[in-house]
Design a protein around this nucleic acid. Structure first.
Lengths: 100, 100
DNA sequence: TTGATAGGCAAGTGACGACTTGCCTATAGT
DNA sequence: ACTATAGGCAAGTCGTCACTTGCCTATCAA
C-alpha cells in the first residue's frame, strides 16, 4: 500500500529533509538537524526530526545504516518513480499496476 | 506553493476520486458519490465528497464547470507532472559527492 | 405552485499527526 | 572511571483533518 508514501510526502518538513538528503546522502540525525536549522531556519527539536525520519523510512524513502554510535540516513528515490503513473496515463507499458 | 498539492494527494479517498475522474472526466458530485459507493464500497456522505473535491480543486487537480443545476468536475493532471523532479533529478549512480 | 433534484454553508465531533518534554541506553574520547 | 556525544522510548499537548448533521439556495419538471 502506497498510503505510507503519500503520507510521508504530505509534510513540508519531511520534503525538506528529502531535499537535504538529495544534496548529501548518508547524513546523521544531528547533521540533518543542523542543516534544517541553518539553511531553512526551522526551529525543530531533534526528536521531531527523528520521528520524521522514521516516517520516511516506513515509506521506503530513507534507508539507515549503523556504524558505532552513528546512524547514517540514505535517500532512496525508487518509491517516487511511478507514484503518479496511475493518473498520467500509460506512458510506459508495464506489467503490473498497484493501486491503493 | 505545492503544499496544497501534496496535502491533496495524502488522502486515499481523494486519490480514488482522481482514479474515477481519470476513468471518466466531467462527472457531477452525485455521480462521483455513486461510484465511490458502488465500485469502492466507501460509505461516505455527499458533503464529505464535496469537501474532498474542494481540496482537489484548491490543489489545481480538478476544475469545475457549471451548467444549470449541474456542476461537472474535470481532471487536470498537469500539477502531477513534475512534483517529484526535485528528487529524481540528475542523479548519477556512483560515489557520493563531497561538497565543502 | 409544488415537489424533486443538485449542490452549498456552517458548526460540531472524533481521531490522527506534529511536536515537545523528560528520561533512558549505548558508544566514544580523556 | 567519568563525561560528552549520538540516539531511542514514551507520554502528553495542541492543532489540523475527515466526516457528520442540519439547514439553506437554486434549478428543473409536473
Amino acid at each position: 500500500m502506497s498510503d505510507d508514501l503519500f503520507k510521508a510526502l504530505a509534510d513540508g518538513t519531511r520534503r525538506t529533509i528529502l531535499d537535504e538528503l538529495t544534496e548529501k546522502s548518508g547524513q546523521t540525525l544531528f547533521e540533518i538537524c543542523a542543516r534544517l536549522s541553518m539553511k531553512h531556519g526551522l526551529g525543530i527539536s531533534r526528536q521531531a526530526v527523528s520521528q520524521h525520519l522514521a516516517v520516511l523510512e516506513a515509506a521506503g524513502l530513507v534507508e539507515t545504516r549503523r556504524e558505532g554510535r552513528y546512524k547514517f540516513h540514505e535517500l532512496n528515490v525508487a518509491p517516487l518513480r511511478h507514484i503518479t503513473e496511475r493518473w498520467l496515463g500509460p506512458r510506459i507499458p508495464g506489467p503490473e499496476k498497484d493501486p491503493s
